[in-house]
Write a protein that binds this DNA or RNA. Structure first.
Lengths: 203, 203
DNA sequence: ACACCGTTGACCAATGTGGTCAACAAATAT
DNA sequence: ATATTTGTTGACCACATTGGTCAACGGTGT
């Protein structure tokens, strides 16, 4: 399976991957239909099972490929010298936006995978695929002395994260509907939110 | 169908409703299986189709019944004399928590229904079932003069809403896992978050 | 002419679908 | 006690969909 995959036309591979991501994200592993996947990908049934022997191995390949791609992209594209916490999170959100343009349903796919897993399992899953990454994003080089000293930091961090998650979600939904990607406008809008949060939580 | 439903044992009706809500929420209308619904509800196939002639009419009944229940509960249980914005939103969240204890998957059911609808359609849907309610929750008797005068109010309101939505979601997930409902502890924790937001956005 | 290879879609047994119905059980009326 | 209605069951149906196979096709290079 592996050597045959390496030689596949990359454009076609992305089409298959996106079709499969969409179907698995929408229906979960069991109810996802290979018939629908081939229809979405615009290929024949036979071809799908030529590249991926079974539905299960397709799912496994998908998971590995897509998780690794996301992690590598984050590792490589984050500016690790950035010291401002909000700017760091903004970078992450923007990178996620670019990934969504290439793999529209990746993050819904992740959500579906993680649904029904306990918090411990989710943590283990994350550490399995990207050991230490989460901590690195949140603390490496970040200057926490900018925050007001009397804050309930645990809850404050949760609040900031929730805001960014929700904003990103609305943003990604939007990206998938309209096709244009007005980088500057999005960044400016995002910065407005960050400004409000900074005023609220920075010294 | 209607008169036969009125006479149904309410405990059994709730079991059927919750089983159907769960299955529809999980799989969407088309992929939801009536076989799984009867299994979850612990009744026979025949009985489900005795009460609800078709899968479609079951879905329609569900939608009406559950939307009306949620709206009536909100209308009746909100303390409309409350003037503090954060307390108002906290009340809504707590009422949602109580509803989740009775209908564990209602809000996931709503989410599934609304997925793939455009923003305009969602707005129309809401106005169709609960005309004016949303506005009433957000403005009726609320004292907005407590907010700092120089705020970007549109974005600030979004932020507050996002925080409460996310907090509620985590709370509801939690409620479904553990069965106990430590009202006081939850309220206290919630109030901590509100305190942070008030310090950030109130004068 | 041949071999090779990516690709197709009709085809398969197996499982699942929404819905029916004759028959049983329990309550209710006579 | 008996007859009647009401609530409930699950085996059963025709049909759709499932994951997966395979003989055949068209194109490319030799």
């Amino acid at each position: 399976m592996d050597e045959v995959l390496k030689n596949m036309d990359p454009e076609k591979r992305d089409r298959i991957i996106n079709a499969a991501l969409e179907e698995f994200a929408e229906s979960g592993y069991k109810k996802a239909s290979t018939n629908i996947i081939v229809k979405k990908a615009g290929i024949s049934k036979g071809l799908l099972f030529h590249y991926f022997d079974t539905k299960e191995s397709l799912f496994n390949y998908l998971e590995k490929y897509v998780v690794n791609t996301v992690i590598e992209t984050l590792e490589n594209e984050i500016d690790w010298s950035e010291t401002d916490f909000f700017n760091r999170l903004m970078q992450v959100a923007i990178i996620k936006g670019r990934l969504t343009l290439r793999f529209p349903k990746v993050f819904e796919f992740f959500t579906t995978i993680l649904t029904d897993k306990s918090i411990d399992e989710i943590y283990a899953y994350r550490e399995d695929f990207a050991p230490g990454l989460l901590e690195k994003v949140y603390v490496h080089n970040i200057d926490y002395s900018k925050f007001k000293p009397d804050l309930d930091m645990e809850r404050t961090m949760k609040i900031i994260n929730w805001v960014i998650e929700k904003y990103s979600m609305e943003l990604l939904d939007d990206l998938l509907k309209k096709k244009n990607y007005d980088y500057d406008k999005i960044t400016a809008d995002f910065e407005e939110y960050m400004k409000i949060l900074k005023k609220a939580f920075y010294k």
